[in-house]
Amino acid sequence: MSTSTSLLIGLLLLVLLALAPVDLNDFGVPYPGLRRYGTYILTLWLVTAIAAMGVNLIVGYAGQETLAQAAFVGIGAYLTAIVTKAGVPFGVAFAASGLLTFVIGIALGFPALRVQKHYLAFVTLAFTVLCWLVFRNEQWITGGVMGIRDIERPTFLGWPLRNHIRFYWFVLAITAIMTFVLWWIVRSPWGRAFTALRENPLRAESLGIDVRLYTLLTFALGSAYGGMAGSLYAPLVEFIDPSPFALGPSLLFMLMVVIGGSGTFLGPFVGAGIAVLLPEWLRAWETWYLLIYAVLVMVMMAFFPGGIVGLLSRLVARKARS
């Protein structure tokens, strides 16, 4: 797809998404707009997709494994909740969340990537458990299992975002910017280097590509996406406790990206959509949902390791040929 068509399609999707919670009957279109809960779910999807984009950068583009994305989301969420309650503006908290998680990403990734493949997976696994312990035990700052409540939604240029639709638009705008940034990176020469280091790190290294540095950068950048997603998550749910940032959710982040299609640009959005919507659809079977999800993942890996987006693009390509 050429640059201008992808941009055009992206813009069109953006407009459609922006209109999703709006009652269009006034404009002669028989569409009542999403209600409060629907808008909330849509916002949650966007926030999840931002974190999943980060995972996709690490897993799909750099070929590494991260099991710490929920921990990074947690760091962003706690940081934002704590400092905005102390009166720091949201913008500062958001930037600080991204920066802090980027720096932690470097600090974790640097020693792990020196050793051998899969060490990053174990180090991030350990890090997630460690973060969860800190969230749970350090009551004086995180509130422990009681969590932090009444996190306020921010004001943007004097425009209060308490209203759910306004907050949705705010999150949508940030998602759009972050999507564009990532799109820019993966189509720049950096993206070409990512492909090279995933497919054949030995050869990439011999062509002057600093494999360790690029891998470290993708990991730190992907983690920062997690931190920024967390920064949006806190004011969205208005109450945080340690449970969504435990090991289980970190594993789910990895699974959702692979289900959507790792290494494809739209994969994280599809995967995040499934991860957010599936528990809603399967509400009647509440306890079964994780079981079904796990089986689904195993079947997908055996038959379509390219994920849903990979499968669809293969079908489209076959249609086009016949």
Partner: peptide, 15 residues
């Protein structure tokens, strides 16, 4: 490849 297998064992752990 290694990644699908890693993912599958993660899913197996949940299962």
């Amino acid at each position: 490849g290694v990644l699908p297998l890693v993912i599958s064992t993660i899913a197996l752990s949940i299962l």
